[in-house]
């Protein structure tokens, strides 16, 4: 589990140090506060294994059409990774430990031909873990969702998905995949017919993506940008309950961002009610008033509860 990260010269971070990560981490802050860039930093640092696809995925997270960009050369994209697009700098990510274990480091720089060169300490390579990033408009294709579902059904864990769906709609009776046209995951309500998941609302689809990724990503890291998207506030509490329970069960470390007051409140309430406060933290991403650097106010669930109760600002305002 990652507990801290120092980020240098990456995206909007000239020099930033974040610590206090727990298993479940929710991040709030103003627009352009660096929340998505922070998720990208964790994605690169914990998951980058020298495969170009890992770097190329950063295109997708920013919703950039890779085909259209290719003629502009990847160099422009790489420039965007650097703080203030200054490609003479070196991007670095570093993780240090309380017990003075040697710190882990990943650094990226551009060579004179515009190709990225990567340097990683040996011990970081040994600590690479499966890291999944779900951007704001993330969608799984019907085929991928069926594959993921079949995988969990083969493990006999399909009931978990059904239970999670019932949080959104208690009338849901059955979930299964069909290879018939169209290939999809199908859902049936009491007294109804099977319908492909694409015909159901955003909340069910999001729930499916998140849960399938947690189950598939055992022991890994899940990064979710704007977690509240598509989920009605009346479902937030039960949604968090399912998510936290599954992250514990599958030993997944979660980093999620949110702008939603209701979502943050629900997170706090669930952590308190399920006595999971010790594994949950909230981070308010802000700019340091003096240095201008991006930093985070780290709040325990106790403090977050206090800030909510007192109507204090805790989302970067």
């Amino acid at each position: 589990m990652i507990k801290s990260i120092v980020i240098n010269n990456f995206r909007c971070f000239e020099k930033a140090c974040f610590k206090g990560f727990k298993q479940i981490n929710l991040i709030g802050g103003l627009n352009n506060a660096g929340k998505t860039a922070f998720l990208e930093a964790v994605y690169l640092y914990k998951g980058y294994n020298f495969k170009s696809s890992h770097l190329a995925n950063l295109y997708k997270f920013r919703h950039i059409n890779q085909d259209k960009l290719r003629p502009i050369l990847e160099r422009q994209f790489y420039n965007d990774l650097f703080w203030q697009q200054n490609n003479e700098l070196t991007i670095s990510f570093e993780e240090s430990f309380d017990d003075d274990t040697a710190s882990l480091r990943l650094s990226l720089s551009l060579d004179k031909d515009g190709f990225i060169t990567v340097d990683s300490t040996e011990n970081r390579l040994k600590n690479i873990i499966s890291t999944v990033f779900l951007p704001t408009d993330y969608k799984l294709s019907s085929i991928d969702i069926v594959k993921a579902y079949d995988e969990i059904e083969m493990k006999g864990e399909e009931e978990i998905l059904l239970q999670a769906f019932r949080v959104i709609d208690p009338e849901i009776e059955k979930v299964r995949s069909f290879a018939s046209n169209p290939i999809s995951l199908y859902i049936r309500k009491k007294g109804g017919n099977f319908l492909p998941i694409n015909f159901w609302g955003d909340a069910l689809n999001k729930m499916a993506f998140y849960i399938l990724h947690i189950i598939q990503n055992k022991g890994g890291i899940l990064l979710i940008d704007e977690i509240e998207n598509g989920i009605h506030y009346t479902h937030h509490f039960e949604f968090w309950k399912s998510l936290i329970t599954l992250c514990i069960k599958y030993d997944v470390q979660l980093f999620a961002t949110s702008h939603s007051l209701e979502m943050i409140k629900a997170y706090n309430e669930v952590a308190k009610e399920t006595q999971n406060e010790e594994i949950c933290n909230y981070f308010e991403m802000i700019r340091h008033v003096k240095t201008g650097e991006i930093t985070a106010n780290v709040m325990t669930m106790d403090m977050l509860e206090y800030e909510i109760a007192k109507n204090q600002p805790f989302r970067g305002e």
Binding site: E284, I286, H288, V289, K290, T295, N297, M299, D302, M303, Y306, E307, K310, Q312, P313, F314
Partner: peptide, 14 residues
């Protein structure tokens, strides 16, 4: 302590 911690948060925002 909570009131002071909350104030710390606001101090870092200036």
């Amino acid at each position: 302590k909570r009131a002071i911690l909350s104030t710390f948060n606001d101090i870092t925002k200036g």
